[in-house]
């Protein structure tokens, strides 16, 4: 594992980091620009999760030890699950931009 290999890893993690930040920015822009809650949720959950993935990958590479990498992966996993759950709940409750003030009508599963 020559020094130049390490340098490549450094560059790679920096690149991943930049990509991750890019996705975060996209998510934030989406948050600001989109008209109503569900669409904003869409922007946020999608962009930020990917951004988080890239950043954690960059961190994993930067640290290099497998134990830390595993922990970071675990963090990412929980983040994904919780953002998914919150997005679901928010979407159901948030009023749609059409001014009706009532939550979006999604098809209802029968028999729950």
């Amino acid at each position: 594992m020559g020094p130049e290999f390490l340098a490549v890893l450094q560059i790679l993690s920096l690149a991943l980091l930049a990509a991750g930040v890019l996705f975060y920015v996209a998510g934030s822009v989406g948050l600001l620009r989109f008209p109503d809650a569900p669409s904003r949720l869409h922007a946020l959950t999608k962009a930020d999760n990917v951004g988080l993935g890239l950043v954690s990958l960059a961190a994993a590479i930067y640290w290099g030890e497998p134990a830390i990498a595993a922990k970071i992966a675990l963090v990412w996993l929980f983040a994904i699950i919780s953002s998914g759950m919150t997005a679901q709940l928010l979407a159901r409750a948030a009023p749609v931009a059409d001014g009706s003030g009532s939550p979006a009508e999604y098809e209802r599963e029968s028999g729950t």
Binding site: I81, S82, M85, Q88, L89, R92, A93, R108, E109, T112
Partner: peptide, 21 residues
């Protein structure tokens, strides 16, 4: 408890996953 049934299912599923962890 969530009043909206489907939301409750989502929360319940999440809890089943989260609680042991």
């Amino acid at each position: 408890v969530m009043t909206d049934p489907t939301s409750r299912i989502v929360a319940e599923a999440f809890t089943r996953l989260l609680a042991p962890a």
